[in-house]
Design a protein around this nucleic acid. Structure first.
Lengths: 142, 142
DNA sequence: TTGCGTGCAAAGGTTTTGCATGGCA
DNA sequence: TGCCATGCAAAACCTTTGCACGCAA
């Protein structure tokens, strides 16, 4: 069976996930973060654990157009992320779990007008969150 | 200035784009397709041209989660793709240009409930198109 | 002791970059 | 003739895989 042993590397990775539960991260982010004084871990270990965590539903996995790497995001509601949509801030990477009701009307219209059935679990809406928006305003002096 | 010369490699690439205007493709797709009898071109030429075409607004560029490569899609309405949403079939890769009206209600609700401003130009809704759906039905014998 | 998880090394794939050459204007 | 675009080669990435060893149970 998989996931039976409690090992130090896996523990370190999960620590990282929880500490960064509200942003996206890459395999490299983890490697850099844990390349500390007494801790270090291997690339393949990170990739293998991330892959497992995705299959367990703990993580969402996707690609970012700007950076050339796979991004991951911690998902609080384990395993239930396949049935609702997500929105992501293009600035900080934070992901929002949306109630489906919000998009039902739009999805019906798309079905009618374009013949396309939207897959809630695979779709990620891109936007900018209120936090980042107010930060930008501050920087631009408005 | 850029893009002043009409060269054969660039011409071949643009030919390919137009012939495949209704699907996504990768740099590799182009390389494989043009590796013909008398024509051949270099990787870097393809990448450099694709990059330029993106900046000119002729192409949309994005990453696919399943495959480890950047995808491109021809955009008929040059340069205007930044202001409306797209939907893509997860099966065949075809992209649909959506009228914004369809999502205005949903976008307003998201702003109210989550504080996030959806960026129409960056968002790609994932779903399955009617063509692929009927093909799947046929295969499953229904 | 058993066998899962890790570390190591190597390989495979995509994408980028420097430099000399070729070809369009 | 200028100078942009290409081709070539090499490098930088990210990611995957095989194999032997260590360690949790």
């Amino acid at each position: 069976m998989k996931g039976e042993y409690k090992t130090k590397p896996r523990h370190l990775i999960i620590e990282y996930l929880k500490a960064n539960a509200d942003t996206r991260f890459t395999a490299r982010d983890i490697l850099n973060a844990i390349h500390d004084a007494e801790n270090d871990l291997d690339r393949s270990t990170v990739y293998r654990n991330l892959e497992r965590l995705c299959q367990e539903g703990v993580l969402i996995k996707y690609k970012e157009t700007d950076i050339n790497a796979t991004c991951y995001q911690y998902s609080e509601n384990h395993g239930s992320c396949h049935d609702h949509m997500h929105a992501q801030c293009s600035d900080c990477g934070k992901i929002f779990h949306l109630e489906n009701g919000i998009l039902d009307d739009a999805a019906r219209k798309m079905q009618e007008e374009y013949g396309i059935d939207i897959d809630y679990g695979k779709t990620v809406l891109i936007g900018i969150c209120s936090e980042c928006k107010s930060q930008k305003k501050m920087k631009s002096g408005k």
